[in-house]
């Protein structure tokens, strides 16, 4: 496995791989987003208690799930950067952080505009909402630490350490609704994985939600790939392969692998 993985420590190999896999995330992401939006907004039935307001679920839940999923992937990149001193992994941390921060912000914002009509408040300091807010601060902290040092490598190292330490918050977010008495409801979908229970949502609502979860994964992954490629080009702008890519207007750099 190491023999297979090791070439990807080289920037041009990672760049070429990224260019190849980008359409496989971007195109399904866009298509599923279109399907999920129309299905969720127009065709899914209204909720018997919440009426049409529950349709916020179709952006709230995917954003919240991937705000945590991308945090874990960022922490793994940070671990690789720290243990094997692979600079591309540091750039991956920098590429993922703003996308994850955006997802976290989306989950908090859509939660607030859902909470106002349903709970009668935009915000409460319950365990779920507070731990999710801390996740946003962790993302912002990683972004800030990365650029806080004169030497970019020192910043990358510090950001990787914070990303790694912050992983402790992920199980806290997930289990907060079980460990504490929260205004936020308990798990509907992810308990399939963590508690081996079937999802507590009608199939007519579950399926468009699943479509949106995969749509968000595709879009967010595509954004991360685009950002990582930009970072690779920025760092290696003096090297011939990067100059070639930038001159050719982004035609695939296929002879690098």
């Amino acid at each position: 496995m190491w023999r297979w993985l090791h070439p990807y420590a080289k920037s041009e190999a990672t760049f070429a791989l990224n260019q190849k896999i980008l359409p496989w995330f971007l195109i399904p992401g866009l298509l599923l987003t279109a399907v999920g939006l129309v299905w969720g907004l127009a065709y899914a039935p209204p909720d018997y208690q919440q009426g049409e307001s529950y349709r916020i679920i179709f952006v709230h839940v995917p954003a919240a799930i991937w705000s945590m999923g991308f945090y874990v992937s960022m922490a793994i990149a940070g671990l690789i950067a720290l243990v094997w001193q692979i600079r591309t992994a540091e750039l991956a941390v920098l590429a993922i952080a703003p996308v994850g921060a955006a997802l976290t912000f989306i989950s908090l914002f859509t939660g607030a505009v859902w909470g106002q009509p349903m709970w009668g408040t935009w915000w409460v300091w319950d365990a779920r909402l507070t731990s999710q807010l801390i996740l946003l601060f962790l993302y912002l902290g990683v972004m800030a630490l990365y650029v806080a040092f004169e030497d970019e490598r020192a910043g990358g190292k510090a950001a990787s350490i914070l990303a790694l330490v912050g992983v402790i918050n992920i199980p806290i977010i997930h289990y907060s609704v079980y460990w504490w008495n929260t205004l936020h409801q308990q798990s509907t979908i992810t308990k399939v994985i963590t508690r081996f229970e079937s999802p507590s949502i009608a199939p007519e609502m579950l399926w468009p939600l699943v479509v949106n979860i995969f749509a968000f994964m595709g879009l967010a992954a595509a954004l991360v790939i685009m950002r990582l490629n930009n970072e690779l080009l920025r760092r290696e702008i003096h090297r011939p392969w990067a100059q070639k890519v930038l001159n050719s207007g982004d035609k695939e750099n296929s002879n690098a692998v």
Binding site: L37, L41, P46, G51, E52, S53, R55, I56, V59, H60, A63, A102, F105, I106, F109, T110, V113, W114, Q116, P117, L219, A220, L223
Partner: peptide, 20 residues
């Protein structure tokens, strides 16, 4: 109108896709 919840539902979707 979204059954009277239009402001909430549409602002949630707008902000989401604005950020992306």
């Amino acid at each position: 109108a979204m059954g009277g919840y239009g402001v909430y539902v549409w602002s949630a979707f707008f902000v989401t896709f604005f950020c992306i």
